[in-house]
Simulated scan of single mutants.
Amino acid sequence: MLFEAAAACEVFGTDHSELVNPWYSFRACGSRQARVGGWLRADTTHGLDTLASAHTVIVPAQDDIEGDPPGELIDAVRAAHAAGARIVSLCTGAFVLAAAGLLDGRRATTHWAHADLLAARYPKVTVDAGVLFTDEDGVLTSAGKAAGMDLCLHIVRTDHGATVANALARHLVVPPHRDGGQAQFIPAPVTHGRDHPLAELLPWALERLDQPLTVEDLARQAAMSSRNLARHFHAVTGTSPLRWLLSQRVRLAQELLESGDDSVEHIAARTGMGTSATLRRHFARVTGLPPEAYRRTFGVR
């Protein structure tokens, strides 16, 4: 599938060393019969044996999911995982990871239209069709199309921090951070600018993340009922008001940890978490690292 392959190439295969140097060393690998988008030949000098020496392997979406993936691809992905590589699938690329046995006992996702087939064909996989992406023990999967870009940015954020990922998102003109747990299917299109019912409310809330905002506070500011607010939030952001607030608080905490030396207690206050214990709990759940370790990894040196 052309879109998902192009997303990975744009993020990792384009030189973004102005953001962090060195950037990723990128290789496009495939068999001699590989096609992209069903019509574009993937003419690459790198065969599937190159996967064995990779640190990260990204399997883009496959067009044909009715039959089994090519055996040589399954073997190459399985060998890369055994060698310690991080394995990533975009959209229906999850069928390759499942065929290789890498999703057994793990939670995974794919495009919502193919989730039932993935679950039926591979019953050992816990298929979650309601999320944008998953990240479990070095095996990552994404939903379809734009969610593949979300997962690519998540990888950059994991490797290089929120500041670099946000700068890259601005360059690509895409949302800087959609949480992996955000709903995959949003009833109404996500709208940007000021053409939606929350256009005034979202910036208002972002300026007050240091305050203990409640759903009632947001509803009062938006001049609507709590139930109506929840409906609009789900339509615009794909998540609930409180989950959106929490993701914004964690995002702000990431930026503060990267750019300064404020104490965790002070950052907890500035992000509206209240206490350092609350910040540590939510931060570690979202990022996989405690705040102190995150600062050591991504803080300004």
Rank of each mutant, 00 (worst) to 15 (best):
P197W: 02
D159R: 04
L209F: 10
V174N: 08
D75L: 08
P123H: 12
H196K: 08
L242Q: 13
R296E: 14
A100T: 04
V127Q: 08
L206H: 13
L117S: 15
D64P: 00
E265S: 15
D135F: 00
E18V: 02
E292P: 03
L103F: 08
P212E: 12
R86Y: 04
A99T: 01
P22V: 05
A7Y: 02
T56H: 13
S276N: 06
G37V: 00
R106G: 06
A94E: 08
G93P: 01
T214W: 06
R251Q: 09
V173W: 10
H46Q: 15
N166Q: 10
D49L: 00
D75V: 09
T44G: 14
A52V: 05
A8P: 05
D137Y: 06
F95E: 00
A268N: 07
V286A: 06
S142T: 03
H114Y: 15
G130M: 11
A188S: 09
A108R: 06
L2S: 02
M273N: 11
V173F: 09
R208G: 13
V300T: 15
L213Q: 02
A6S: 09
A82M: 12
L229P: 03
A269K: 13
R208C: 01
P197Q: 11
R285I: 02
H266P: 00
C9F: 07
F185D: 12
T158V: 13
L97N: 08
A119E: 13
G272P: 03
F283H: 11
V59E: 11
V156Y: 05
S263H: 14
A34K: 11
L289I: 13
V20W: 11
R178S: 07
D179Q: 12
I65C: 09
E255W: 15
Q62D: 05
T297K: 15
P290M: 10
Q211S: 07
